[in-house]
Design a protein around this nucleic acid. Structure first.
Length: 430
RNA sequence: GACCCUGUCGUCUAGCCUGGUCUAGGACAAGAGCUUUUCAAGCUCUCGACACGGGUUCAAAUCCCGUCAGGGUCACCA
């Protein structure tokens, strides 16, 4: 049985890079019908915080990576001491006393050639004579990362260690521990790192790094996962959009790229739009509801959810981020709309009182207030006035929405309703 | 600096293992146009890459070597 693990340290939020590592571990476990284990590496008591643990677990669930087992290193200190004692007794480690009299356990590194067969990179060779003796147990009694990692991976029967590129140079040290402890060696696979647009690691300077930031911005978890997947793996057949089930079907760790990839927000936006336009509007409404309430666009209770659902349908195909709806559709929710000054200058500087009033009269005369009828009456009017449709369409849009862009004008008027349409047009028809 | 990893359009990638079908394919971005209702949606088109040098071979993006470039690691952090 294949067993993999994701081992985050709760000293911060789950980052894009961590999310990606979790994704590949999870995907591999699913494709191999194995187990996905989560291990919280909270040996650093100073920096580890419960809130970060909660945040990491929440983000992993949000991304859809459910784990089969969960461990905390802070609960396993006795295990690390036990194995350190074994190495001490075997003469493979020694004790070093600090000036204050505290004791640390140090591993004796012997000179040898260490070969690692990486599933993604092939064979990698190291010369351990370049590695100095390694601390196993620090003088405060806590284990070092490399030691705790090896003890846990061995005890938890981890068969494949899939982690970031930055751990390659930790691998020979860990291999030495495996050998000294008599543990069988797992398989290693090192994922390429994700870089920011300006080169180097993805950092806060270059943009948002936490998975939760992307959730807050209005990215769908499926889209984020899809994009992350594309960042070092291709499903083949020139496909870009692929759901998790298909990915599980097609995934092969050997096809993962070796090259570091640059995180490109524009492409993420595109992928997100692909998911947004096909998303169930009801689901989008559920995501949006708390935000609409927060903005006081809708009341906690009693608002017409069916109506808002229709508005979402009007916009969802053009959204890159779900939260853009809040700005783009604001004119449906607020009475005093903000008119874009440039749009006003361009389309409302001419007096259109007569045209607006005639259009209102047309709308009032409608037997049934539907988008189709609104358009028909509008077309009749411009024909009568002998003007081009767009001469009137753009000013109408700006007067009604305050913007030059948005959904089709006639649908928009239909959902705005006769009264609001009249009120907004009359402001420009003195 | 030492060690390690990596180098295909601006970006993500296909192709590389098993040389010829590659005057290198797709996607994002960008640019142009269409959609006589906008675009942030849709459609069409354009721009644009095998890091460089040597070798092997009838033939190299594909194999080998070197150079250069980028990245990572060198903690009693994880």
């Amino acid at each position: 049985m294949i067993r993999v693990r994701f081992a985050p340290s709760p000293t911060g939020n789950l980052h894009i890079g961590g999310g990606r590592t979790a994704l590949f571990n999870w995907l591999f476990s699913q494709s191999q019908k194995g187990k996905f284990i989560l291990r919280i590496e909270d040996t650093d008591r100073e920096r580890s915080k419960k809130e970060f643990v909660d945040e990491i677990l929440f983000s992993l669930k949000w991304l859809g990576f459910n784990w089969d087992e969960l461990y905390y290193q802070s609960e396993r200190f006795d295990r690390y001491h036990e194995y350190a004692d074994k190495l001490l007794q075997a003469g493979l480690a020694y004790i070093e006393k600090s000036p204050e009299g505290k004791e640390a356990v140090i591993f004796k590194v012997t000179a040898q050639k260490i070969k690692i067969n990486d599933l993604i990179r092939g064979q990698i060779e190291f010369d351990s004579s370049l590695i100095k003796d390694q601390v196993l147990i620090k003088s405060d009694g806590t284990p070092t990362y490399n030691f705790a990692c090896v003890v846990d991976d061995a005890e938890m029967n981890i068969t494949h260690i899939i982690r970031g590129d930055d751990h390659i140079s930790n691998t020979p040290k860990q291999v030495l521990f495996y050998e000294a402890l008599g543990f069988p060696l797992p398989n290693f696979a090192h994922l390429p790192l994700i870089m920011g647009m300006e080169g180097g690691r993805l950092s806060k300077r270059t943009g948002a790094t936490a998975i939760s930031d992307y959730r807050k911005m209005g990215y769908l978890p499926e889209a984020l996962v899809n994009y992350l997947l594309l960042l070092s793996w291709a499903p083949g057949g020139n496909r870009e959009i692929i759901n998790k089930d298909e990915a599980i079907e097609l995934f092969d760790i050997k096809n993962v790229n070796k090259t570091a990839a640059t995180f490109d927000l524009k492409k993420l936006d595109w992928v997100n739009n692909q998911y947004l336009k096909n998303a169930n509007p009801q689901k989008l409404l559920e995501e949006l509801s708390p935000l609409l309430i927060e903005k006081k666009y809708i009341a906690e209770k009693g608002s017409d959810r069916e109506y808002i659902l229709e508005l979402i349908k009007l916009f969802q195909a053009r959204l890159s981020r779900l939260n853009d709806f809040l700005d783009w559709a604001d004119f449906f929710f607020i009475e005093e709309i903000k008119i874009d000054p440039l749009a006003q200058e361009k389309f409302l500087s001419k007096d259109l009182s007569r045209e607006f009033k005639l259009f209102i009269a047309e709308l009032e005369g409608l037997s049934s207030f539907s988008a189709v009828n609104i358009e028909k009456s509008f077309r009749d009017l411009v024909e009568k006035l002998n003007i081009e449709a767009k001469v009137l369409i753009h000013p109408l849009r700006v007067a009604l929405t305050g913007k030059t862009i948005g959904p089709g004008l006639f649908e928009l008027i239909y959902y705005l309703g006769l009264e609001r349409t009249k009120r907004r047009l009359l402001k420009w028809a003195k």
